[in-house]
Design a protein around this nucleic acid. Sequence first.
DNA 1: AAACTAATTCGATGGTTGTTGAAGCATAGC
DNA 2: GCTATGCTTCAACAACCATCGAATTAGTTT
Lengths: 127, 127
Amino acid sequence: MATQSVHADIAPLAQVLKALGEPNRLRIVNLLMEGVQCNCELGSALDMAPNLISHHLRVLREIGLVQVERDALDARWLYYSLNVEMLTQLSETFGHFFDASRIRERLPACGPQATHLPRAELVVGAT
Amino acid sequence: MATQSVHADIAPLAQVLKALGEPNRLRIVNLLMEGVQCNCELGSALDMAPNLISHHLRVLREIGLVQVERDALDARWLYYSLNVEMLTQLSETFGHFFDASRIRERLPACGPQATHLPRAELVVGAT
DNA sequence: AAACTAATTCGATGGTTGTTGAAGCATAGC
DNA sequence: GCTATGCTTCAACAACCATCGAATTAGTTT
């Protein structure tokens, strides 16, 4: 496996952050931290219509954070839960991307103070 | 001080996630990890118009993640950088909220086998 | 004074999206 | 067969938001 870089691609990370950046969805994730729950439970806990719960669960499922299982005795019931591996990987990605120790000291390449300062070391990669 | 709970309020957390859940904003944050930069630098790096850069920087500034400073010699230049304390606190909040060890084992309170059967016999696979 | 520069703010637009109500689907029980 | 249940999907609407162009502010230079 390649060394994990922060620069990987930030588009999928942005997609996950966007999905989580919705209050009701974040509440759903928080509730799923308590364990498996069905649609009706989430709906009553959040005072939301089941179709709306279903909509948000769909978004969370599309980013792989939520998984669903069907009851063995009564297949009408769907049980939603968090994908542990996905959550672990997500937490790790966040920890790396938003690590404050990543911040480097750097003077702006533009502006009046940039002219008389050496910044050859700032040049990265291609031209 | 109060014991830091995850339940604190998820509305502000959702706001931060929403602000970061935009690809261009996330790119700006990633660039600011390299150090102080001005509007024009970010704009040329991301190939975006200065007014658009200004818009996204404004959003990042409203959540406290980005701070701005004015050049001492030429006050026309604004230098943007990341708020280290805010980023540290943010990373910590993420680490707590999305900690996979928070997930608890719990049987659904609804359904035909609400509190009866052990979880192993509970479910079958589903998409 | 005017002209130039860096950046912001304004106005308008097109696309996205959360929310709502009704309909549809699949399963279970009669 | 029929009805009830749990959940999803559809259609429509309203609000939000990223993007663009033009105008504006603030500061510097000539």
